[in-house]
Amino acid sequence: MTIRKKGNNQKSGVFPEKVRESFEQLQSELDVLFNNKNLLYQAFTHSSYVNEHRRKLFTDNERLEFLGDAVLELSVSKFLFEKYPQMSEGELTKLRASIVCEPSLVIFANELEFGRYVLLGKGEELTGGRERPALLADVFESFVGALYLDQGLERVVAFLEKVVFPKVELGAFSHVMDFKSQLQEMVQQSNNGILHYEIVDEKGPAHNRTFVSRVLLNEQELGVGRGKSKKEAEQQAAQSAMQTLKQQAQKGE
């Protein structure tokens, strides 16, 4: 009796040529070349497709999704930890949750047009599975898991540096970390005066510029921040100012 081990047992040769060509196109668009193409195919293989092709030993993407979720959370956590040294544990957790959640993952997947490449069963296709948010979010996580197995964490981070991290830096999640509003509330509660922001420096070429901002309270500097945009620099300055006010409050100033 032969016992088959469940795993990455699907072979690229069993897919129609049109499918294989589409995945070659995807790799070209992403500038990612898989060493093990089967991992790439598996990342986009939905369970409904496996159920309709039982004799061909396809493997769905559910296990890759499980792995990708953990890899994505680790990668985003490390990025936020290094990018925002002033953030508390609670603030980091809140921001990470807004990035690694279904609505955000769907946005990332749609921008990469991942829905075009998902391998679905006919029933799932007819009921609009290709546009289903949960399915798209799962595929994004599966792709991250496949890339991690194929090329390691460093390559995953390089991928996220193109797809995810720039959105954080440009303020796509500013509704979660709106430090300017939080600082304004702190100042209003204590009737401390008027806040004013200034861009005090700009460095680097136009395509990779760094802005430096400072925030003043009644003309006294409270914090300085840096960012890839004026908005990000001001947010960082506000966060720094909040730390200053908290320290002053602890000292009884």
Rank of each mutant, 00 (worst) to 15 (best):
F211K: 01
E124N: 11
F143Q: 09
V139I: 13
V176N: 09
K122M: 13
L245Q: 12
A134T: 14
V164T: 07
M177V: 14
Q236N: 13
K231P: 00
A134L: 11
Q220E: 14
P166T: 12
L120P: 11
S174M: 11
S190L: 12
G193W: 04
E219D: 14
V224W: 03
H196V: 10
E161Y: 04
K167P: 03
D138G: 12
F179H: 11
Q151A: 10
Y117N: 08
L149Y: 01
Y117R: 07
E169N: 05
G223V: 08
P205T: 11
G204D: 03
L135H: 11
T244N: 10
V176Q: 13
L136I: 13
H207C: 07
E124K: 13
Q182H: 15
M242F: 06
S181Q: 06
S240H: 11
K203M: 09
L195F: 01
M186S: 13
M242D: 09
A233G: 09
P133C: 04
A172C: 15
R155I: 15
L217D: 03
V156H: 10
E169D: 11
D150V: 04
H207W: 03
A241N: 08
L136N: 12
L170N: 09
F159T: 08
L135E: 05
Q189Y: 11
Q151F: 02
L222S: 04
S240V: 03
S229R: 08
D150R: 04
S229V: 01
T210F: 06
D178R: 05
V157S: 01
V156G: 10
L170D: 06
H207L: 07
P133I: 05
E124R: 06
L170R: 14
L120K: 02
E131D: 05
A134W: 01
T244V: 13
L170P: 00
R155G: 00
L160S: 12
R226Q: 08
V176C: 13
D178I: 07
S229W: 09
D201L: 11
S142L: 01
V212E: 12
V118Q: 09
E234W: 05
G123W: 05
E125W: 07
S240L: 01
E141I: 02
V187P: 02
Q235C: 09
L147V: 01
G227E: 06
V163M: 12
S181H: 05
F211Y: 14
T244M: 10
L153E: 12
E154F: 02
E141N: 15
E232T: 08
N192P: 01
